[in-house]
Each structure stands twice: as structure tokens, then as C-alpha cells.
Amino acid sequence: MVTPHKTRRPDELTMEVLELIGDVVSRFYADYEEAAAEHALTGAQARLLSLLSLEPLPMRKLAQKLKCEPSNVTGIVDRLESRGLVERRPDPSDRRVKLAAATDDGRRVARELRDGLRFARAPLAGLSDEERLALRDLLRRMLDA
């Protein structure tokens, strides 16, 4: 006979950490939306542009990274393309696949978006290199779990 898995209620420290993570995420998104609005972009458009400023990506991969439907990505790319921030080009390894890529203007706007993010910049700058490395490593461990 299989006994049901008993879920333990999180301890106080875990609950406090979860609350703090939620607050950080909320403030980061609010800051990101504000920076995007300064460029007349939605948060989703800004996130997509930021991804494309790193490397051209196929629509399906963009949808996976943004955790949305490919049809949504198509609409976002269409709007960014009409503003000259993104272009579609054939994938050199498979010409049937279209890649979305940031234009020079798109990379400039993405850089300005990153520079416009104010939340956490000062608090992170107040941490030592060792503390920032520890925080980075802990966040990576959480994401890999």
C-alpha cells in the first residue's frame, strides 16, 4: 500500500525568503516595464528585443524563452519589425527557418533599456565581488534545481 506523500509546511525562514524573492521579481518587472515604456515598448517587446540583441533566434526558440505561443511571438516581431528594431532573415544552416534578429537600432534600444534599469543596480553595486558571485551562484543553483 502506497502512503500519500505528506507535504511539510515551509519553515519561517523559507517563507521569508520566498516573500523576498517575490518582492524582488515584482520590483524588477515594474522597473523593466517603466524602462520599456520610455521607448514606447511593452514589457514583452522589450524582453524579446533584449534576447535578440544577444543573438538571432528562430521564432520557436523565442517562444520557448518567453514562455508563450509562437503566434504571440510573431505579432511581437511584426510590431518591432515595423519600427525597424528587428528584422527577419533566413537561417544560414536551414534556409526554411526564419531567424529574428535585432537591427543596429534594435541593439541600441536594447542597450538603452539595460542602462535604464535602476532597480537593484545600486544595491548590487553595494555588494562586494565575492557577495555578488555568491548571489549569482545561489540563483543559478535555484534555477538548476
Rank of each mutant, 00 (worst) to 15 (best):
A120V: 07
V86A: 02
P70Y: 03
A44R: 15
N72M: 12
E112G: 07
Y32G: 14
A63C: 02
R140E: 11
P90S: 12
P56I: 00
E87Q: 12
L117N: 03
M142S: 04
E131N: 05
D129C: 07
A37W: 08
S128K: 08
E12F: 03
G106N: 02
V86H: 03
Y29F: 15
E38R: 15
D78I: 10
E87C: 12
Y29G: 15
L18C: 13
A125G: 09
D23N: 15
R95F: 11
E112H: 05
L48H: 04
T14G: 01
A110H: 00
R79Y: 02
R121Y: 09
R47S: 12
R96Q: 11
K61W: 01
E19D: 09
R27M: 07
R95E: 13
L57K: 13
L117I: 14
A101I: 04
L48D: 06
T14W: 00
A125H: 06
S71D: 08
T3Q: 12
S128V: 01
R132W: 06
T42F: 07
L117Y: 05
T103S: 04
L41G: 06
V2H: 10
P92T: 06
E12M: 06
T14V: 11
V2E: 06
N72S: 15
S50W: 12
I21R: 10
G43I: 00
L18M: 15
E69S: 15
H39C: 06
H5L: 15
E16F: 10
R121N: 03
R140Y: 06
A134Q: 12
E112D: 11
M142A: 13
R88S: 07
Y32W: 10
L13T: 10
Q45Y: 01
R111S: 11
L54P: 15
D94L: 03
V97T: 11
A63Q: 00
R95V: 14
T103D: 00
E69K: 15
